[in-house]
């Protein structure tokens, strides 16, 4: 698993595309193997009450110790993350963003009219709102500077939903990819996944990147080329080439998350 952590300079789109001459052949054989590995570990799970419905696993379940979110800042942090993701969608279509907070807020309200976070926004007083606005703007400036132009020939897809059913539908594993470039149908690995976070990068963001790579592998049946994350809090970014070691680790982390949640009282 090769990785490199950088602090500035190369644009995200340049990292995502990389050098076209150095791409490995598309791996179309691995997805079935990883699916078998995951399913194999779930065979011995005890029976769960059917009234509970399917167990739903998302990226945040990868935390070995679930973070307890206390205090008024948490919903605002969630909101900030949602707004920055929305800005990424606008930027990926070539939309110029002049008023980051207002544009992101408008786009988010339009595409998520029923989000519980609307209440958070409504409950903000003028000071809170000004604080969120300046916070979002600072993160947006980092994103805009780091991202670089998204060429429409790279087939950008934003907010891509992935859902996989395991153990005959008892377990539903879900994911959302902020930005996907390239195609899974080429002879060489060409799909690059990008995740934007408003938190500093940590071991958890690495696990989330591995999770994204595994989920996209299971969805398309083709191993993606690379995964990249940007922290708009610090401007740091991290990239991984997707290989067997990375996917094997992602499988292990997913198995652990599923078993932990399955046995949670």
């Amino acid at each position: 698993m090769s990785s490199a952590t950088m602090t500035a300079e190369p644009r995200i789109t340049d990292i995502l595309r990389g050098n076209r001459d150095n791409r490995p052949a598309a791996n179309r054989a691995a997805a079935g193997h990883y699916r078998q590995l995951i399913e194999g570990a779930l065979e011995n799970l005890t029976t769960r009450a059917s009234t509970l419905g399917p167990l739903v696993i998302r990226a945040h379940h990868l935390d070995p110790v679930p973070v307890v979110h206390i205090g008024p800042a948490f919903p605002l942090a969630q909101l900030r993350g949602a707004l920055i993701s929305e800005l990424l969608r606008l930027l990926s279509t070539g939309q110029s963003v002049r008023r980051p907070f207002e544009d992101a807020r408008e786009a988010w309200a339009f595409s998520h009219p029923h989000s519980p976070l609307h209440r958070t926004l409504e409950e903000c007083d003028a000071d809170d709102l000004a604080r969120v606005a300046t916070d979002v703007t600072a993160h947006a400036v980092t994103l805009i500077k780091a991202l670089g132009p998204v060429n429409p020939h790279w087939q950008p897809r934003t907010d891509v939903s992935v859902v996989q059913h395991l153990r005959g539908g008892d377990i539903v594993v879900r994911d959302r990819l902020d930005l996907v470039l390239g195609s899974s149908r080429e002879a060489v690995a060409s799909e690059a996944l990008f995740d934007v976070t408003t938190s500093p990068l940590s071991s958890r963001s690495d696990a989330v990147l591995r999770y994204h790579a595994l989920m996209e592998t299971l969805r398309t049946g083709v191993v993606p080329l690379r995964v990249v994350a940007l922290s708009t809090a610090t401007g740091d970014r991290v990239q991984y080439e997707v290989d067997d070691a990375l996917l094997a680790r992602a499988v292990s982390e997913l198995q652990t998350a599923i078993i932990t949640e399955w046995n949670r009282p």
Partner: peptide
């Protein structure tokens, strides 16, 4: 314009 950009992004995806 912003809302239209969201529609375009969704449709392109």
């Amino acid at each position: 314009d912003v809302q239209r950009a969201v529609v375009i992004a969704d449709t392109v995806t």
